[in-house]
Simulated assay, not measured.
Amino acid sequence: MIFYQKETTRVHQDHIILHEVGHILADHQDDGDVGEDLPDLGPDFPHDLATRGFRRTCYTEGYEREAELVATIIQEWAVVMDYVTPRTPEDPALSALHSALSPRWGWL
């Protein structure tokens, strides 16, 4: 699962999701370092999910910069391909990402 911030712009949400996809594409492994105290989410909430989901970083680690770069590249391609590709997907909110990830035109 990929979690993202609800109270932000759609572009920022897409970037957060693509950043996490960047970790998946680069096969990054979780180092388990939380770096901060976590909120008490109760006994039924999986602790390993909390350690990954509530971690904050300033991208000093190479793997974080790499994931950020992947997200930025995909979003840039999405904008370019959306501009030059005349087709429209069923959901207009997905048009930029659809264009970037299309096997015919996209980056991947």
Rank of each mutant, 00 (worst) to 15 (best):
F3R: 15
Y4V: 02
Y4A: 06
Y4S: 03
Y4E: 00
E7H: 13
E7S: 13
E7G: 09
E7T: 03
T8M: 11
T8Y: 05
R10K: 09
H12Q: 12
Q13E: 02
L18V: 01
E20Q: 10
H23A: 01
H23P: 01
I24D: 01
L25F: 14
D27R: 15
H28C: 13
D30P: 08
G32W: 07
G32T: 11
G32L: 05
D33T: 13
D33E: 15
G35C: 14
D37M: 02
L38R: 12
L41F: 07
D44C: 07
F45M: 14
L49P: 04
L49Q: 04
T51P: 00
R52N: 08
F54H: 10
R56Y: 08
R56C: 02
C58M: 12
E61H: 14
Y63M: 11
Y63T: 09
E64V: 04
R65G: 04
E68L: 03
E68V: 01
L69M: 12
V70W: 06
V70Q: 00
V70K: 00
A71P: 00
T72D: 13
I73R: 14
I73H: 05
I73P: 01
Q75P: 00
W77K: 11
A78R: 02
A78D: 02
A78I: 03
V79K: 14
V79W: 13
V79L: 10
M81Y: 07
V84K: 07
T85C: 12
P86G: 02
P86D: 14
R87Y: 13
D91P: 07
P92R: 04
P92M: 02
A93F: 05
S95C: 07
A96G: 09
L97Y: 09
H98R: 08
S99E: 03
S99D: 13
A100M: 07
S102F: 03
P103E: 06
P103Q: 07
R104C: 11
R104Q: 15
W105I: 08
W105N: 10
W105A: 06
L108V: 11
L108C: 11
